[in-house]
Simulated assay, not measured.
Amino acid sequence: MIYEGVLTKMQTEFGNPIQYYLVFENSFLNVNQLLDKEIEISFQGYQCLNCGKKKKIFRQGFCYDCFMSSAAVGDWIMKPELSTAHLDIEDRDLTYEKRVQLQPHIVYLALSSEIKVGVTRGTQVPTRWIDQGASQAIPIVEVPNRYLAGITEVALKNKYSDKTNWQKMLKNEVAPLDLVQERLKAQSFLPNEVMPYFSENNSKLYQLHYPVLEYPKKVTSLNLDKSPNFQGRLSGIKGQYLLFQDGTVFNIRTFEGYVVKFQL
Rank of each mutant, 00 (worst) to 15 (best):
M1S: 08
I2P: 00
Y3P: 05
L7G: 04
L7R: 03
T8N: 10
T8C: 03
M10W: 15
E13Y: 08
N16W: 00
Y21W: 13
L22K: 05
L22Q: 12
V23T: 13
F28E: 12
L29P: 11
L29D: 00
N30E: 12
N32R: 06
D36F: 02
D36V: 00
K37Y: 10
K37D: 10
I41G: 00
S42K: 12
S42R: 12
Q47R: 13
Q47V: 07
C48S: 03
L49N: 08
N50I: 15
K54E: 15
K56L: 15
F58Q: 01
R59G: 00
R59L: 14
Q60P: 00
G61D: 14
F62Y: 15
Y64F: 15
M68Y: 08
M68H: 08
M68P: 00
S70Q: 00
V73R: 09
W76Y: 08
P80E: 00
E81F: 14
E81Y: 11
L82R: 14
L82Q: 13
S83W: 00
H86D: 06
H86W: 07
E90F: 06
D91W: 11
D91I: 14
R92E: 07
R92G: 11
L94K: 09
T95S: 13
E97H: 01
E97I: 05
E97W: 02
V100L: 07
V100W: 14
L102D: 02
L102Q: 07
Q103M: 07
I106A: 03
Y108M: 01
L109F: 00
L111T: 01
S112Q: 02
S113P: 01
E114L: 06
I115D: 01
I115P: 00
G122W: 07
Q124H: 13
P126V: 14
P126K: 11
T127A: 12
W129Y: 09
I130S: 00
A137G: 07
I138T: 02
I138W: 14
I140D: 06
R146L: 03
L148T: 04
A149E: 05
G150D: 06
I151P: 04
N158A: 14
N158T: 13
S161N: 10
K163R: 15
N165K: 04
W166A: 06
L170C: 02
E173F: 03
A175W: 03
P176S: 04
D178I: 09
V180L: 13
Q181H: 11
L190R: 09
P191C: 03
N192H: 14
N192T: 08
M195W: 01
P196Q: 01
S203V: 02
L205R: 02
Q207W: 02
Q207S: 10
L208M: 13
H209L: 03
L213H: 12
E214C: 09
Y215W: 12
K217I: 10
T220D: 11
T220Y: 10
N223W: 04
D225A: 11
K226F: 08
K226Y: 04
K226E: 14
S227E: 15
N229M: 09
N229I: 13
F230C: 06
F230W: 15
Q231V: 11
Q231C: 13
G232I: 03
S235E: 11
I237C: 12
I237V: 11
K238A: 10
L242H: 09
F244L: 07
T248R: 10
T248F: 12
V249N: 04
N251G: 01
I252P: 06
R253A: 09
T254Y: 14
F255I: 03
K261G: 01
